[in-house]
Design a protein around this nucleic acid. Sequence first.
DNA 1: GGGCTAACTTAGGAGCCGATAT
DNA 2: ATATCGGCTCCTAAGTTAGCCC
Length: 769
Amino acid sequence: MSGVYGRGHSQVNCGSKGSDTHKHKDKYKDKEHRHKEHKKDKEREKIKHSNSEHKDHSEKKHKDKEKLKHSNGSSDKHRERHKEKDKDKEKRREEKIQSSYLDKPKKEKENGYVRDTSPAAIKSEPEEDNGFYPSPHHIKTSKREYDDEEFEHKPKKVKVEHDKKAKKRKHEYEDDEEEEDVKHKKKTKDKKLTEGKKAKKEEEEKWKWWEEERYTDGSKWRFLEHKGPVFAPPYEPLPDNVKFYYNGKPMKLSGPAEEVATFFAKMLDHEYTTKDIFRKNFFKDWRKEMTSEEKCVLTDLNKCNFSEMNEYFKIQSEAKKQMSKEEKLKIKEENERLLQEYGFCIMDNHKERIGNFRIEPPGLFRGRGDHPKMGMLKRRIRPEDIIINCSKDSKHPKPPPGTKWKEVRHDNKVTWLASWTENIQGSIKYIMLNPSSRIKGEKDWQKYETARRLKKCVDRLRSQYRDDWKSKEMRIRQRAVALYFIDRLALRAGNEKEEGETADTVGCCSLRVEHIKLYPKMDEQEYVVEFDFLGKDSIRYYNKIPVEKRVFKNLQLFLENKQPEDDLFDRLNTSILNKHLQELMDGLTAKVFRTYNASITLQQQLKELTCPDENIPAKILSYNRANRAVAILCNHQRAPPKTFEKSMQNLQNKIDEKQSQLSAARKQLKAAKADHKASHNDKSKKAVEVKRKAVQRIEEQLMKLQVQATDREENKQIALGTSKLNYLDPRISVAWCKKWGIPIEKIYNKTQREKFAWAIDMADEDYEF
DNA sequence: GGGCTAACTTAGGAGCCGATAT
DNA sequence: ATATCGGCTCCTAAGTTAGCCC
């Protein structure tokens, strides 16, 4: 990794996973421990520039921590309090979960807006209008269009065709450049129309929602119909010959206990099952499923032997692999059938793909990092747990025979089709549409438009936060320094998290003193800040950057009289920060900076790295390098693939082989040339040409392999997918492809092309983020 | 304004599956 | 024909943000 990746700041981001991380985590374990013992002492903060309004805030922020003012005795008190709080929470959650078990149907929500707007969905299509289907988006302007009759039936025809006369959509958030895009498109579209029906066949499948108007009333749809979720297959008891042993003796388990045991048995090869917390949580929850007799006997997980069960599952999966073609085909067909039946819904006249139509099967919770709840039992979700969301006037999904839904509601202010409450954290899980859907695509597009608006005012914001570094008020200085980190390092906002409920990870606002180190001088550089913390998914962020003197001085000030486990920004949280950002620019939040900086970095890097004369593989390497710069900025890491070394070796072998091929081919060319010199006839001339071509071809192949090797090596611990999918304005990539004649397939695979269909359709080579 | 939490985006890893090597 | 590999899809955890209630 060379300096190519910088964004003009010299920074060394050597975040790492793997063994390093483990060491790191251990370190964190210790710290976590200390963290619990040692609580924040509000009294400590004698901040120089404090004034009255600060106090209010910090008081609240450290509400539970302040009880510890007087170190010793109060620490216990605090812990007690904490425990109580936990208990309270537990209770609340249990209540919540309990209530989700009961199928007391809540009274149907009578949302005015539902009735108000749903008819639009069922607007029948005026045939006489030559293929012009009124867009559901027109509703807001055309209430008069529907009459009562239409209220009660569903769309007669699901639209799979895009509006041929679709009006150009007016996106308030767009700027003028878009205008031209659309004009251009219209031309091509008209051309297509004249091309006749043959060409239309494929075209028909694609609905260009981005050429339609959006809803402006906050509703997400007018009509929604679906078949409900697919439930996890029921538990199949083990055959009698597969035994579980306790203390060396075989023991037949009751159904529920056996099922939970199989969850553990299936994971025996996984590192999880060696972790204490995992084992403890698993055993506790497992015992809840046991009969009272089993509970008496099974008291020690260490005496449990699941290996026969584990073996059985291995054989099963082996057998599955060995199945005949026909059997495999049958399964495939069954999956396809399920997908066709449950994998799609009808939203506003269009058939749309659902993202996750299968309910999560029961199993053991796999929290990431040092998650305090890992190993807990994720219970089986039943129809009685599910809330269905659909149009009132749609064909409601049927619960499996003999069951009921928890509730059926008709809320078109949300995008989900079904939801349930999960039992580990008590949070809600949703069934939503695929990224290729209109509803997700619009949001995605909008996200990039917001980032582009930030581009227009980022200079202003930057000079403002630089000014704020000098503020008299502590809270403003903290806000300004945090914003600087978010902007320059693409840190996440960093919400506060419940201690003990999740892994101890942080983002910008939740950084603690222990996460940064200040070096007035380091090597050649002055004012270096070293970051070392665990971020989302417990991925380590490690970075050293030189900062402006003023930032450095501020940080020193923030650190004064604090303990390692105190908050760095004690006068700041995400809510304060985002409220501030909202005032600076409409729609601005902390994460917009990540999107903006990612996208602008890609654009800059592409400009810098692409050599016009290079061939396509080399250009793609440049693209990947630009992408990599972003992934590094956003700290998107992956565990080096298990087979990394081997696969590199394989590639190297291929390169060696190609190289010897090349020298052989060169020799042949030389010989042919000599031959031609001697004979000077057409035949020998041709032979030279043939050989020359061969050399050229092999050279190209070799080059391609070498590029591939470089790319893979550089990508060892970097994951490009996340930034590609979530942070990079796809129009930048599309424009780049068009500019250099690179097929879009080289950059985006099929799924990605589906997700970014809007961008592929609308961006031309001049697009500027 | 804080606490709570619903709704939605972002995230890495597991495991499947089809292409390619043997 | 079978084994291996690498990309892709699926899965679901873990974030962010807005909005409600008090």
